[in-house]
Design a protein around this nucleic acid. Structure first.
Lengths: 173, 173
DNA sequence: TCCTTATTGCAAACCGTTTGCAATAATATT
DNA sequence: AATATTATTGCAAACGGTTTGCAATAAGGA
């Protein structure tokens, strides 16, 4: 996972920080740069792990606090990914283009999807309810083509799912 | 909060239960009927509280386990409500009509919104990605007309938000 | 360079949720 | 209707992600 710095975005972080009296610590920069260059959405633990490669002394609480700050600054977004992977939260740098997060309930694979219909929802809401949309979170669960192919007759069971009894509170979704 | 039984839905629960070798215990019925007649989305704690009014001996673990079972049966849906209220999960009986959950980032008020654009997203996804949508969760954060009116010059701060320092990990969103 | 205070790291707490297990009770079987 | 089977319950304890208190540190303005 190469740590490529995105100049424009880093600058944005600095400006925003200054505006609000926030300080640009090495830890804050590091955490942001990890999120920026991450190929997938990461959770706090993963971010910590990655951060420790460059700053072994960094603490998880610093990660949590910075995620919280950036979230409030609107620099990053927090996702649940339909709890397909677990109960933790996942993070991504806020994208210019609104997108949905789609996950396969069978294999757990997630991907992003862009469609104009997303904006249509916001428009409708603003028009019909006089509501000013700040952000929309769309998470969709379904079955990808590959998994539907495999599903010959049996029920599709989520990969890696631990099923002891139907009452066990173990599995997700 | 009157416990009105919805015959059709209860029957549905019974059928579904039987199909899957699940048993219709008094606790399971009770929890379902609470969700059915709830005026808002409830979290596990609230459901337990409500359930104890009719069955003081019921345990929270029973609530959790049943929510998990019903979730897997597709009888109820689990929501995060954008974490506007907290990190817990909220539940609702699965609706026939797909709807979005919209919340005001200022006053925290939540409401449901129905628009054909929602189905358009699913259609696009099925067509463009050969994906079979099982369910979509749309959660939107924004500012209601009332709060936008109040926002004369200052920043809108979420009601009840505890803010000590900008770094405090206390506030939501 | 000094001062103010935002931020950090550590340890411990917190809270929603899950698990192990023996007792109980809902269904299927006889 | 009686019995056998096993899903479900309640209790107590654990779990895991996240948050808090606090003293030490360091960023950014004066």
């Amino acid at each position: 996972m190469p740590m490529v710095h995105n100049i424009r975005r880093q600058a944005g972080l600095a400006e925003l920080a200054q505006q609000r009296g926030l300080r640009l610590t090495s830890q804050r920069r590091l955490i942001f740069s990890i999120l920026e260059s991450a190929p997938t959405h990461l959770n706090a633990k993963q971010i910590l792990e990655e951060a420790r490669k460059q700053d072994p002394g960094i603490d998880q609480v610093t990660v949590y606090r910075n995620l919280s700050v950036m979230k409030r600054m609107g620099v990053i977004d927090e996702l649940d990914l339909l709890h397909l992977r677990g109960e933790e939260h996942y993070y991504e740098v806020r994208q210019l283009r609104e997108h949905c997060h789609v996950g396969c309930l069978s294999c757990g694979q997630m991907f992003e999807f862009v469609t104009p219909a997303m904006k249509a929802i916001n428009k409708a809401l603003e028009k019909e309810c006089n509501y000013k949309v700040a952000y929309a979170r769309i998470e969709i669960g379904g079955y990808c083509a590959k998994c539907r192919g495999k599903e010959e007759q049996g029920k599709v069971i989520q990969k890696g799912k631990r099923v002891r009894s139907l009452t066990s509170a173990t599995s997700r979704i």
